[in-house]
Computed example of a mutant assay.
Amino acid sequence: MLKIEDLKGVMPPIVTPVDAQENVDEQGLKNVIDYVLDGGVHGVFVLGSNGEFYALDFENQKKAVEITVNHVNGRVPVFAGASAITTKECIKLAQMAEEAGADALTVLTPMFIKPNEKELYNHFEAIAKSTKLPVLLYNNPDKTTNNISVSLLEKLAKIDNIVGIKNTSFDFAQTIEYIRVTKDIPNFKVLSGSDYLIYGTLAYGGAGCVAGTANVAPKLVVEIYDKYMAGDYEGAMEAQYKLIPLRNAYSYGSFPVVMKDCMNLIGVKVGDPVKPIEHCTEEKLEELKKILRDLDLIK
């Protein structure tokens, strides 16, 4: 179980390698975990949006969580995604993750439907009450079209086992407000979900980041955090700027293929994206290689 002081640093939402039948590839997933742990990350988040959670049925989600928990083996906390459209399905996933030994849950706002604030509050409250695990809320309004407002977050942060929020939004003012309204709650942390805003979130008092680029360049993302925490603000800023071209490359293909393609290019074989998503074009793969060469990730 996650201790609040361990909710910090860099957590990659790890990509999920799949086989030809689009089922979880156990060895591939272990290789991804080894790669990011070697990069010094502070936690591992399985079944995030970069992990194509939406493409995996319950059995495959369960398999991904179990493999991750067993392979990480207590070295860092494991956050398991428990995200779905309905409250009932999220509770089922939450209880599965708890049983599998995850340290915490990460729960996205529902997608496709448009709950009001009261409905969203009741949704997250019911999930939190269904498990002993700490819950990290996950705001990603671009993808789900639902947004956790600042006033809603103030209410949710009072629920005992809701311990933080990851904001994957380009609305940086909202992240700052999240931090401001929760700064007196000792058991609540705010993390950046946008890889452009890691340094900025730390500067305002955030606790770290859930960064998709940390799949590919874990050492560089960890460098932003470590240097910032050591007071080397210039070094941290430099590392943040160095990361931007990799984050800009998200537009080279349909989300979330780009991090998978980068992993394949650097030699961590993760296979194909789940259809209908397809690999980047040859032309874009060449551009990705240039970015990866500039980061010394390939020769």
Rank of each mutant, 00 (worst) to 15 (best):
M1D: 02
M1S: 04
D6G: 10
G9Y: 01
P12Q: 00
P12F: 00
P13A: 07
I14W: 01
I14V: 14
D19T: 08
Q21P: 04
N23H: 15
D25M: 01
D25I: 00
V32N: 04
I33Y: 00
D38F: 10
G40H: 09
V41S: 03
H42T: 03
F45E: 01
V46L: 02
V46Y: 01
Y54M: 08
E59Y: 12
N60G: 11
Q61A: 05
E66R: 08
I67D: 05
T68S: 05
H71N: 08
N73V: 15
R75P: 15
P77N: 08
I85Y: 00
I91H: 05
A94W: 15
M96K: 06
M96V: 15
A97P: 01
T106N: 07
T106M: 14
V107E: 03
T109P: 07
P110N: 06
F112W: 15
K114S: 10
P115F: 02
P115A: 03
P115N: 05
P115L: 02
L120Q: 14
Y121S: 02
Y121N: 02
I127C: 08
K129W: 11
P134A: 04
L136Q: 13
L136G: 06
L137E: 08
L137D: 11
N140S: 09
D142N: 13
K143V: 08
S149C: 02
V150T: 14
V150M: 09
L152Q: 06
L153G: 08
L156T: 14
A157M: 12
A157Y: 13
K158T: 13
I159V: 15
I165T: 00
N167W: 03
Q174E: 13
I176K: 12
Y178T: 05
R180V: 03
I185H: 09
F188W: 11
V190K: 01
L191D: 06
L191S: 07
S194C: 11
D195L: 07
L197K: 01
L197W: 01
I198F: 02
I198K: 02
Y199T: 04
G200I: 01
L202I: 04
G205M: 09
G206S: 00
A207T: 08
V210F: 00
G212P: 14
N215A: 10
K219P: 07
L220F: 06
V221S: 04
E223T: 05
I224E: 04
Y225Q: 01
A230Q: 13
D232Y: 05
D232S: 14
D232I: 05
A239T: 07
Q240V: 06
K242E: 15
G253S: 14
C262G: 05
V270S: 12
V274F: 01
P276D: 07
E278K: 15
C280D: 05
T281A: 15
L285Y: 03
K289Y: 12
K289M: 11
D296N: 15
D296E: 15
I298W: 10
